[in-house]
Nucleic acid binder design. Structure first.
Length: 497
RNA sequence: GGUCGCGUGGCCGAGUGGCUAGGCAAAGGUCUGCAAAACCUUGUACAGCGGUUCGAAUCCGCUCGCGACCUCCA
């Protein structure tokens, strides 16, 4: 396998070799949340996926500027009411108070799932001038028109003149163009159903409003991503990501706006994560088929039999490729729980292995090296985390066998063992972003010391063949969900799942 | 209705023409004072039907089932 990075580009619908615009640097934009409601697990999956991608690109040595926005204005509901305004009315809060509340909640959730903060996290409301400028540019280029203080993107004209519309989302342009004005219903300001607002005149009761050359109003939903990606990453940049459900119309319109404003191509590679399903259906706030991250962690939901730690959930998600749908079920989570524990135990065991200086590297050494190389190879193939994890689990088997004595360390070169330790550290924690739950308990080492004492006392009892005492200790610990593992080299312990 | 995608062993989930994915569960064995843990072994899996091919889970066609997008959604 080659060590060049390949990724699936939604634009071409093919895996392509990744070639950044500027060697050594990557500009990456991911559509962030709309902060008018609590983040749900689907959001988490997408941001965890891109977190791993961000981490891996960094691992490869790229200097990555990762921009992930916060949308706090412009997102319209079916009835045309601004989402921020809706939230404000329901809870009697200022719109920015709503945005702030859910932004904080979102950040907290990202922290819980160990998602790294992006390099820049721009807010739509903080970039009104940039958006107004973009509307002006689009108007100047003739791809928009003003009606009663609102400005609409002239999608029909754009389609006819550039032929660029629909490429990303695979729309049938003929069909889009064929739609008549009859489909417009009450939104009669638009000339064509495919047109979309880039500036909206605010109705009298609308709270969020800014002055513009056309009216006091607010920017259209799709505009902020075009404006902010251009501002921070340039007119053309490397990667743009987001959930699959944003492909149309959001991303398609983004591309149109970029080109319509400056003939800019925008992102060269588009990446889309697939949906998280619950009981075989898409998780969605609107139809109630949902479980919140808090509920999942606490086990406070009819969908799960117990709570799952954030790291188990993260691991669960990494066991599926980002472009596949993932069906969340209690059974699958239980399997992930145990698998995650096995991975963590394997890592712990590995770090305890001591190399033999006079080892004679043989077939085992070669096998380890091959498996290790495979981990990176899989990641280079469109960030295939499930396959990379499969390679790591194969390594875990070897590690356990080395510990258990079924395989011998005198066949492993000290350098190979060192590299293996380093690889586990880098991939499990640095790239997959997993954390050991035990460490997250706030354990300061007291427990470990206590356990060591108990293990020593039990070992003494065992040398006396005092099985009663030995078993009493073992059973009592088991009742506390602490498991003793007797091995050739002594006894170790861990938490039971 | 239109567009796109999916259907893999008990469960989850990789895999795109020949070569063991992996995790969980299950069975047998090794180890153990007994266990557990660990290790080893074990699954005639690719929705159905037909076709292409020396060879298909993988390509083509049809059928059935499911999902996503088309409207707010990561």
């Amino acid at each position: 396998m080659s060590n060049e990075l390949k990724l699936y580009n939604s634009l071409s619908r093919e895996k392509e070799t990744f070639q950044p615009l500027k060697e050594g640097y990557v500009g990456m934009y991911v559509c962030g949340p709309t902060v008018y409601y609590d983040a749900h697990l689907g959001n988490c999956r997408t941001f965890i996926s891109f977190d791993v991608i961000y981490r891996y690109l960094t691992h490869l040595g790229y200097r990555v500027r990762y921009v992930r926005n916060i949308t706090d204005v412009g997102h319209l509901l079916d009835d045309g009411e601004d989402r921020m305004l809706k939230g404000a009315r329901l809870e009697q809060l200022e719109p920015m108070e709503v945005a702030q509340k859910y932004t904080v909640g979102f950040h907290e959730m990202m922290r819980i799932f160990n998602v790294l903060p992006p390099s820049i996290e721009p807010r739509a409301t903080g970039h009104i001038p940039e958006q107004i400028e973009m509307v002006q540019d689009i108007l100047k280029n003739g791809y928009a028109y003003e009606v009663n203080g609102s400005v609409y993107f002239d999608t029909l004209k754009f389609m006819q003149q550039t032929g660029l519309y629909g490429t990303l989302s695979g729309r049938n342009v003929e069909e889009l163009m064929a739609e008549s004005r009859d489909n417009l219903k009450n939104q009669s300001e638009k000339r064509h159903p495919a047109d979309f607002a880039i500036w909206m005149k605010a109705s009298p009761e609308h709270i969020m409003r800014w002055r513009s050359p056309w009216s006091e109003g607010f920017p259209g939903w799709h505009l902020e991503c075009s404006a902010m990606s251009t501002k921070y990453l340039g007119a053309e940049f490397d990667l743009h990501g987001g959930g699959n459900d944003l492909k149309f119309p959001h991303h398609e319109n983004e591309v149109a706006q970029n080109f319509g404003s400056c003939q800019c191509k925008g992102a060269r590679y588009w990446m889309h994560t697939n949906m998280l399903l619950l009981n075989g259906k898409k998780m969605s706030k609107s139809d109630g088929n949902t479980i919140s991250p808090h509920e999942l962690i606490a086990g406070d939901s009819a969908h799960v039999t117990k709570g799952y730690s954030p790291m188990v959930v993260r691991f669960f998600m990494l066991q599926t490729h980002y472009r596949s749908t993932l069906d969340l079920t209690d059974e699958a989570l239980q399997a992930a729980d145990k698998g995650f524990r096995r991975l963590m135990d394997g890592h712990k065991t590995l770090q305890s292995l001591q190399a033999l200086p006079d080892a004679q590297p043989g077939a085992l050494d070669a096998e380890l090296l091959e498996l290790m190389a495979g981990v990176a190879d899989e990641m280079n193939d469109d960030f295939n985390t499930p396959k990379a994890l499969a390679r790591i689990f194969e390594l875990v088997s070897r590690i356990n066998a080395l510990k258990g004595g079924q395989l011998s360390l005198d066949q492993v070169a000290p350098d190979t063992l060192d590299r293996l330790k380093q690889l586990f550290q880098e991939f499990i924690f640095g790239i997959f972003g997993l954390q050991n739950d035990d460490a997250a308990d706030g354990d300061d080492g007291t427990l470990d010391g206590l356990m060591q004492l108990i293990i020593d006392i039990r070992a003494e009892a065992r040398t006396r063949k005092d099985w009663g005492t030995s078993d009493k200790i073992r059973d009592a610990l088991k009742a506390l969900s602490l498991q003793l593992k007797d091995g050739k080299e002594g006894t170790s312990w861990g938490r039971e799942v």
